[in-house]
Design a protein around this nucleic acid. Structure first.
Lengths: 212, 212
DNA sequence: TCCCCGGTGGCACTCAGTGTCAATAAGTTG
DNA sequence: CAACTTATTGACACTGAGTGCCACCGGGGA
């Protein structure tokens, strides 16, 4: 009514079309499999033209990638928000828990999407590429938390990599068990395994830093 | 002359065409960038038809993927060949060292390929997808070495993931430094970071295994 | 009212990837 | 030597991905 939010009215139709497309795509992909769905089908199901699909997504894979992109920012934000006195293993566990908690909140829908991604080579590849970006971002945050330069010390990148390995292992087990295993329990157990390396501060300075 | 090797004469023409194609592709890709090279160009440079290219490789990406595929088997074989009494951190370091040593042997060529892969999103994605397969294979070998079931214990998969994170970090640093950093030194430092988790046998049984 | 502008659909084009078929070369058997 | 078999290849056709271009529509402001 009053004061225009300045990002108003017309923009939300755009968001609506995007949601429509994402919904239609995820529905069809999970149902028929990645290769069996054409972009014409997705566009038709969302009620737009094929050309319009490409104004929102760069490719069929991109629908899923965009669905995941927000996660990286969330993990990074959570890590940055954790108190600096928290040991890396605890801070990283909380950070990685953010997207996992999102899965735990919508088990049905999330499980279908996770299984689609993990079982479709093209999507798995894109998912892992995304994670490589997350790893770099997390390494930067970790570096500033600990006062280490990610371009000099190997620790930040490796710690981020270990945390994401744990993330992958959890999702893998959850997917393979069709959602039967408990996400919180899996996460705790996975981080228990990697924690000795994440928190081995005494060894870090001597072993991982450039000698001299 | 005598005894036909049974994998004879005609087969090596096939190998020759494959090599020709791989060579032409890597040359063009490194020179012009991934997207700027069409398959017609590659085929023409190798002196065959476009259709023939697809009889050897499933896609442009597949040229690089096949170039990498052997590595996974090599890592796995080396891990299986390490003495069982060797701690996981040492055995995994030797296993991961195999492909890194190959890079160290041909620094010029290897660096060009590594940089091409790490800097081309589509190739990075495929590379990481390959690694996911390596991770599963290494987890299986690790499991049998330690008498752990990879479908019950999280440790084998996580240990393999950590080792491959180290592998990635080493390649990344090597690539970013244009080959200036020493591969052996990087590898040792990376494994020094993750070793505390790989060798924390005492904590493993209590923390990572299914409770009870 | 007229104009400007973001979003859209339609069209045409390049390139990736696949199936099919006919021609060729090489190796085999009589 | 001739007929036959098998593998490899080039040529053609076709579907689908992805992109550039342009004309069209609807709303908001001068």
């Amino acid at each position: 009514m009053s004061a225009k939010p300045e990002v108003t009215m017309a923009q939300r139709k755009r968001q609506l079309v995007s949601d429509e497309l994402t919904e239609a795509a995820l529905q069809l992909l999970a149902l028929k499999g990645f290769d069996a769905v054409t972009i014409d089908e997705i566009a038709a199901a969302a009620g737009v033209s094929r050309r319009t699909f490409f104004r929102y997504f760069a490719s069929k894979e991109d629908v899923v990638v965009q669905f995941l992109t927000g996660m990286g920012a969330d993990i990074q934000a959570e890590l940055a928000a954790r108190p600096v006195e928290e040991p890396p293993s605890v801070a990283l566990r909380h950070a990685v828990w953010v997207p996992i908690a999102a899965c735990a909140d919508h088990p049905g829908r999330a499980l279908r999407v996770v299984q689609l991604i993990l079982r479709t080579p093209a999507l798995l590849a894109r998912f892992l590429e995304r994670q490589a970006q997350w790893r770099d971002d997390l390494a930067a945050v970790l570096g500033s938390r600990l006062g280490l330069d990610p371009d000099t010390d190997l620790y930040p990148r490796l710690a981020a990599g270990m945390a994401l390995s744990a993330f992958d292992a959890v999702l893998q087990r959850w997917s393979d068990s069709d959602g039967a295993e408990d996400l919180a329990d899996l996460t705790d157990r996975a981080f228990a395994v990697i924690a000795p390396a994440l928190d081995a501060v005494e060894g870090r300075a001597a072993d991982a830093r450039e000698p001299r």
